[in-house]
Design a protein around this nucleic acid. Sequence first.
DNA 1: ATTCTGACGTGGG
DNA 2: CCCCACGCCAGAA
Length: 109
Amino acid sequence: MKKEDSFFDKVYEVAKQIPHGRVTSYGAIAKYLGAARSARMVGWAMNACGGRDDIPAHRVVNRKGILTGKHHFQGTNLMQQLLESEGVEVIENQIQNFENLLWDPMKEL
DNA sequence: ATTCTGACGTGGG
DNA sequence: CCCCACGCCAGAA
C-alpha cells in the first residue's frame, strides 16, 4: 500500500482530470471526494503539490472563479497566464464566464 | 496532546 | 456582488 492514500492524492487525481481550457472550484472537488466540508484541504493539497507540473492547480479556483491561489504560484501572473493560454479569459484575478467554463467532476464524471 | 493556520463554503444582512 | 461570522478538517510546529 502506498502512502498515496492521503486526501491530497485524491485531489491530485481529480485535478489531473481537469480538461484543458476548463476550470473547477475547490468545493466541487471536495464534494466529489466526499469531503464537502473540507474544501480548504483541497487547496491545501495543491500547496503541498510543490513542483508537480502534472497538477494544473491553475485550473482550480474558489467558488467565485477568482484566482485566490495565484499568490502561491511562482510568478505573480503565472496562474492567469496559464489560464489565458488555455482560452480562459481572466480579468482582475477573476475568470470571465466562469459558470460556463466550470468543470464539475460530479457532473462530468 | 494542544494550538494555529489555511489556495473554502455557506448563510445572513 | 460585498461584508461578517462560523464551521470544517488535515497537517505543521
